[in-house]
């Protein structure tokens, strides 16, 4: 069932992000060199590039989790509410933590073992419904498939409603239905003004959904509108470099 997400707070455009000469070196290894590009407010911006090219490091630099140099500036007229979908959830699969417990854990201060607080229930119901997990809310996380766990990570990123959504390969593990659900969700969020920045590998999807795309392999190889920059030769160059 399609349940529209409602952002009661605002429908203005989300923040823009500026990467200005960002460098990242870990030990003696240079991970990122002179990265400069911008993410426009309220757009879907994809980050592509070969494995080990520094995509996740760039995202983690934006999150403030990597000791980079250069400037990463988030500009927004109002407060920035960030949603983040990590690549995977690392946990002991035998732990008796249900989908509801997980959502309670991320959304409320009261211990998850006391159940979901009444004030959070409607928004949690809505988020789970939006990612198609309503019927599995009593399942323990270890019993969920990889795709279902990815849906759960998406659901938590919607609470509180973000105006900047960062995703690290959210399609990994999703089946066709899951992929369609994600695309619908992203378009809906975009229409509500949310700025979306995501790492993605499927170039066909990128062409279909992204407003802009940036290819990173240590440095920026190209950046622009997918229809203009995703030519066969550029893709070949990007993924055969290094």
């Amino acid at each position: 069932m399609f349940v529209p997400l409602i952002d009661n707070k605002c429908c203005s455009k989300g923040p823009g992000v500026l990467f200005d000469r960002v460098n990242l070196t870990l030990g003696n290894t240079s991970i990122l060199e002179n990265i400069s590009f911008t993410i426009d407010p309220g757009t879907i911006h994809c980050l592509i590039g070969p494995n080990g090219g520094g995509k996740t490091s760039l995202l983690r630099s934006l999150l403030g989790q990597m000791p980079h140099t250069g400037e990463i500036a988030i500009s927004s007229p109002g407060p920035v509410v960030m949603g983040y979908v990590p690549q995977a959830l690392d946990f002991d699969h035998t732990l008796p933590i249900t989908v509801d417990d997980f959502m309670a854990m991320v959304c409320q201060g009261r211990p998850a073992f006391t159940g979901i607080k009444a004030v959070h229930r409607p928004s949690i119901d809505q988020a789970l419904s939006r990612v198609g997990l309503t019927k599995k809310r009593k399942r323990i996380l270890g019993q969920l498939s990889g795709g279902e766990r990815q849906r759960l990570l998406l659901a938590q990123a919607l609470l509180p409603f973000p105006n900047l959504l960062l995703m690290d390969e959210p399609m990994a593990g999703l089946d066709k239905d899951g992929g369609r659900m994600l695309n619908d969700l992203l378009m809906e969020l975009k229409h509500q003004g949310v700025t979306i920045f995501w790492i993605h590998h499927d170039l066909k999807e990128v062409k279909a959904i992204a407003d802009r795309v940036t290819c990173v392999n240590k440095g920026v190889l190209f950046s622009g509108q997918p229809g203009l920059v995703l030519s066969s030769q550029q893709i070949l160059d990007a993924f055969s470099a290094r």
């Binding site: 035998t94 732990l95 008796p96 933590i97 249900t98 509801d100 417990d101 309670a104 854990m105 211990p111 998850a112 073992f113 006391t114 159940g115 009593k138 323990i140």
Partner: peptide, 13 residues
């Protein structure tokens, strides 16, 4: 508790 629990509530209590 983990042996017989199906939720955090059961696990803790």
């Amino acid at each position: 508790a983990r042996n017989i629990s199906r939720s955090m509530k059961g696990f803790f209590f």
